[in-house]
Design a protein around this nucleic acid. Sequence first.
RNA 1: CGGGGCGUGGCGCAGCCUGGCUAGCGCGCUUGACUGGGGGUCAAGAGGUCGCAGGUUCAAAUCCUGUCGCCCCGACCA
Length: 584
Amino acid sequence: MRYSQTLIPTMKETPEGAEIPSHVLMLRAGMISQVMAGAYSYLPLGWRSLRKAEAIIREEMDRAGAVELHMPALTPISLWQRSGRVDAFGDVLIQFKVRRRNQDAHLALGPTHEEIVTDIVARYVNSYRQLPITLYQVQTKFRNEERPRFGVLRTSEFLMKDAYSFDASVEGLNASYQRMYDAYCRIFDRCGIEYLPVEAESGPIGGDASHEFMVPAENGEDSVVHCGACGYAANLERAEIGPRDTTASTAEPKPLAPLDTPGASTIEQVTKLLKCKSTKLIKTIIYTADDEPIAVLVRGDHEVNEAKVRRAVGAARLALAEPDVIEKVTGAPVGFAGPVGLSIPIWADEDVRVMSNAIVGANKADTHLVGVNLERDFSVTTFADLRNADADDACPRCGKAMKLRKSIEVGHVFKLGTKYSEALDARFLDDQEKQHAVIMGCYGIGVNRILASLIETCHDENGIVWPLALAPYEVVVSPLNVSDQETLAAAESLYDELAAAGVDVLLDDRDQRPGVKFKDADLIGIPLRIVVGGRGLKNGELECKWRWKADAEMIPLAGAAETIVGLVNAEKANPTALGPRAKS
RNA sequence: CGGGGCGUGGCGCAGCCUGGCUAGCGCGCUUGACUGGGGGUCAAGAGGUCGCAGGUUCAAAUCCUGUCGCCCCGACCA
């Protein structure tokens, strides 16, 4: 492509409103253009990169035996009603009515496609002989995000690769899941992304049923814990916590005493009022577990993990108790609950075991108790791991301290089970003529997020540093002075040869000063830059520079195309791009 | 949904508090000349309903009210 004939509106300045590197650089490099909050046009350069990511995904999906199809973004609301997800999605589901033959057709834009694909399988797959099968598509998804943000990272319309596996047995599901998991690793490896497959909350299926593929990045919206020693990684909802600090306090037990704390109903207010650390408080939260009230205790600086509580208690349903239940159980308004004198089951996180002279709610309005001690003042029904993991918690595998890392979720694999196949009647007959619901898995990749997370971790002060795999163009040929016939002719013939050899090459044929061309090439991050200038031509040489290297090297003009093709192929085969280390 | 910020040529900003000449500056753009290895110089230009609506005033980019849009923090996120 000739630079003069495409549209690459680079910007010297950062548009107002863009703050994180991927957003700033995608705008400045002329890759995207905002249409409204949460919706972007992909300009030619951005579109090329997006298509490269898509192509890698397709190749690896196909290699893993998945079959591509294409479903509509437009869907009937009835499908979502059948699965019960109209309510589950709430306002996130974009729905509307259109007039058709004087009737209202109630439609929704697909936020994901479990219902649609399951309906297809329900229609056409009836026998175990047709299983297993994995179907996938690359499709635009629509979600009415409460708050679109961070450029292309969270938008209301985005490109997603979604795959769905259908199996006749749990063993089959496990095999399909593993194939997708492996394919995901290959995809992100090929994209040059540094990623972490983490254990994720798996919902009712339990077990090893869900992994998220996370890219550690400062501006990520999610947090994962990661053990640098053994590699254990999990999202906060899922992370187990290793051995706790069991050193009992040596402090002399103080007498139990009430204290007036008017209006202080939150941990923050209490710590401010009493000028104490939140680690001295015991947070008492009343839940209803299958409609029975229970109290859950965690240290003041910790957060209750509802999934852990639900599993520990063995409840099907767990919810924060309604205010009237809390008042009935504790005798106090919300914010003053405490374990002393409670008559409902008390579940406590392990860390509560070693607390002494704690501060708790007094089960009385505007009052807290100080000098509270386990056994003497209250007892706990059961101790368990009930809280979210945090930085410096011990790794459950090796016991070393874990780190908390902000991350971007780029992929998610999930064993679904029969939730949708049952709701939408996707059943098959086994070889005994017995009918079963098809067992499903679903696997998503945010294509836009691949680009954003790559840029987020691979840029320097001059711009994007693309790996060859995702770069919109692999090579840019820059004649420094296009009004010099010799320079232009040399650049054009090199450009023709490279293009003929199948290299994605951009010819910067603009009548611009060298500085402008260099700055733009760096900003848009083309991996290999070939400079055709009078200085080199005199010696029969071209300058050749990788975006991620500090220095250029000279190559002979004669046979330059072959040399460059060789360099590109070598880089493709064995990437040396600095990756995240290029970060400024 | 709670909190905060911003809307002024294509882009980035100043002006607003304390109302008053023809609304400025940088970048970009057009034309010409010079220049030609890291966003060059000179000259001449084009381009703005100051987000929108209403109000106050002799007079509104500036003050008041409403409204729309965008961004950030938090809550939420199959």
